[in-house]
Design a binder for these strands. Sequence first.
DNA 1: TTGTATGCGTTATCAG
DNA 2: CTGATAACGCATACAA
Lengths: 344, 344
Amino acid sequence: MPEDPPNSAPAHGPTIYEVARRAGVSIATVSRALRDTGPVAPRTRAKVLAAVEELRFTPSRLGVSLAEGRHAANGIVFPDLSGPYYAEVVLGYEEVASELGRSVIILSARGRSNVRDQVKDLAGRVDGLVVFGHTVDDATVRELMAAGLPVVLLARAPIAGADLVASENIATAGVLTEHLLGHGYRDLTMLGASTGDDIGERWAGVTRALSAHGLTAGPPVPCEFTVDGGLAAGRDLLRRRTRPEAVICADDQVALGMLLAAEELGLDVPGDLAVTGWDDIMAARHARPALSTVRQPMRELGARAARALDELITGARATTRHQTLATELVVRTSCGEHPPQEDL
Amino acid sequence: MPEDPPNSAPAHGPTIYEVARRAGVSIATVSRALRDTGPVAPRTRAKVLAAVEELRFTPSRLGVSLAEGRHAANGIVFPDLSGPYYAEVVLGYEEVASELGRSVIILSARGRSNVRDQVKDLAGRVDGLVVFGHTVDDATVRELMAAGLPVVLLARAPIAGADLVASENIATAGVLTEHLLGHGYRDLTMLGASTGDDIGERWAGVTRALSAHGLTAGPPVPCEFTVDGGLAAGRDLLRRRTRPEAVICADDQVALGMLLAAEELGLDVPGDLAVTGWDDIMAARHARPALSTVRQPMRELGARAARALDELITGARATTRHQTLATELVVRTSCGEHPPQEDL
DNA sequence: TTGTATGCGTTATCAG
DNA sequence: CTGATAACGCATACAA
């Protein structure tokens, strides 16, 4: 004989108690019938399913999560979504997470002062978290990890004990630099100061390659990482007493702004000035001159992070792992006339 | 005297029971002290806060939601995130939702067969849902609404009883068409067949404007809404016996592909062929020729949807509302030589 | 001002 | 094969 609900007021949808009563069984049987988690007589199952159908019953996610002790949801906190880069990565993440049966809760850190609080709230809603870029301070990340939350770092500086997924930056920055040197440029400047993230690594790669040739460059020029930021910084840069021969931009958006600045000042690219970007976003291919850049597997970056996080959550893997995804120099026309030569 | 937890095994973090015991008070007092929802003596409060601090207590979101009967989270299901358009809209949505103290759970419908099931799962995790584009069939949307879930439709065909936020399409499509006619083009073709969404509205606007001049156009040419889709369809289109004078593309990505196709075939834009887009994504400005297009307030679209949904959820508004956001023709060079004339 | 008891909607254990 | 009941973690009438 089915028992009655211990309480009275029903919420929005029907509850398992109403289904049980309708089917003339207990809530335990309803649960078993629905989840196939124990023996249920065919006739009983049919009654239950009929009741479920008639009442349009859907188990409450809250109830399920509370009982199961898991959210079946992942979080991701990212710097922004305005450029194509971040959006693509998040999309790749959502796609895989969804395949793995996990919802994804997003949190943008863009111009947010209370990221820390928001991240902690987010942490309470998920079974695991991806921290994309330098959106959360190390102390907070460590705190979350200490509380037992699986964390995967994405495209940022490592933290001991946390998984990491990132693109290769240093070596390809070297390849890019060599290519520029192959064009004959000697005076290179880096546009877009940053440190501790992937951009910092790019500058490290550039610097290393230059010094291998006995060359040096000034410190990266500060610049907001947007088209307008590149435009503004580009104007300043091109008005200096001595103009650089080549500008290596932190990413494609900055490079696009740089192109605009050059055009404004009547400078020819690549005739008067070489420009390169990083990411290979759609606009890079369509810009004139078409932008030489470095392609990184944005979608795959997110996908890998999702898989790594899942392994951590399910316990399929306990040790931390660092994954580095290959990147590729894409030579178009903004870096100089071609065909020049294969790099040495 | 504080009571003991009714059960034994603690979960991950400390629970309110442990805090209560540590502070020597009841769980009710802990809750009141933390939420400021009732009288608590200063001394008592201090004890509670101290215990919270020592134990690093964070209330379980699940417990809170279950007790409060709300998720403090919104959902959004969108078609894709790969183009800049959708990403911008989602970002605008997240930004406002976050300001309103609500997390956002995303669901991409891209190439998903089981969207219906996923949406129903999502519905169980949120207090309200934004349906962006034609990602969910009307029946399902109605079902969710019938179950009491607040729903806001975004950039898609209306459903009775549901809020709607969309960009103005028809009138601006007319303005665009008039502009093209002003250039002297008479043979226009629409690239990117679609119906029941904003693109369908654009075609309606174009058709209406043409017929006002006694002109007609063939039906929209089918085309995938990506750069590659535009490229492929563009190749076919330009190899036809009679080439159109102007191609109105469904969106900027398609137009960018069209530009590529023209270049491939050695055609000059706008000399041999005029091309227009829609959305004004970043690449439109950087393409050569720079793309004439229609700017729509992508971020604002998402922001409005978030606010509308919040009103519905909080009950601040009970009646449904349709909002149409203004759009603007952006004339650059892909549609012809300028200055020609102001439209009549 | 504080504590008790109960509700929120499931799942799972353990008798029967 | 099925039912009663204890978790899960918190909020909140209501009583004291």
